[in-house]
């Protein structure tokens, strides 16, 4: 069976979740692989949420918030934007390809953009293959044995 990526999407309520809903009301079809968590603002996107998703078996994590300048809470998205580079370095340390985490800006009127982002990200993760954290958890045990 071909590999079907499992992706967790964390979307801000005001822009990206609304944009995803708009894709729905406009009946735009896209890959079913992203499962969405709604938070009020991308500012709430704590690195631990991303790590939790990988730990639970997600092959990729998509974060989406309002475009810069459009955050409903003024600047929450800016703060998330600043967190991501460090988080990506942590991912590398953990043996997770940083491309498995993506941050996108999707506005409430960009249903088509959401559709495009999801389809593209799903394909990217598909080509990266399954994350399979268990199998990657080796070095420490390997050197011990």
């Amino acid at each position: 069976m071909s590999f079907e990526p499992r992706i967790v999407g964390i979307l801000c309520n005001w822009c990206s979740y609304t944009g995803a809903d708009l894709a729905g009301t406009s009946r735009m079809k896209y890959a079913p692989n992203v499962r969405v968590v709604r938070v009020m603002c991308s500012g709430r996107m704590d690195p631990t949420l991303v790590l939790k998703a990988f730990q639970e078996g997600a092959d990729g994590v998509l974060l989406a918030g309002c475009h810069i300048g459009d955050c409903h809470y003024i600047s929450g998205n800016l703060k998330t934007l600043r967190r991501i580079p460090l988080l990506k370095r942590v991912l590398v340390e953990l043996g997770i390809e940083p491309e498995r985490l993506r941050l996108e800006w999707v506005s409430a009127s960009e249903g088509a953009r959401y559709q495009g982002v999801v389809n593209e990200f799903v394909e990217q993760i598909r080509s990266l293959g399954p994350l399979d954290l268990e199998a990657r958890r080796l070095p420490a045990t390997a050197s011990a044995s």
């Binding site: 938070v39 009020m40 603002c41 500012g43 709430r44 704590d46 929450g76 703060k79």
Partner: peptide, 10 residues
């Protein structure tokens, strides 16, 4: 507080 959660995440 408007409940955005930015401080929570940080």
């Amino acid at each position: 507080c408007k409940g955005c959660g930015t401080c929570v995440a940080s």
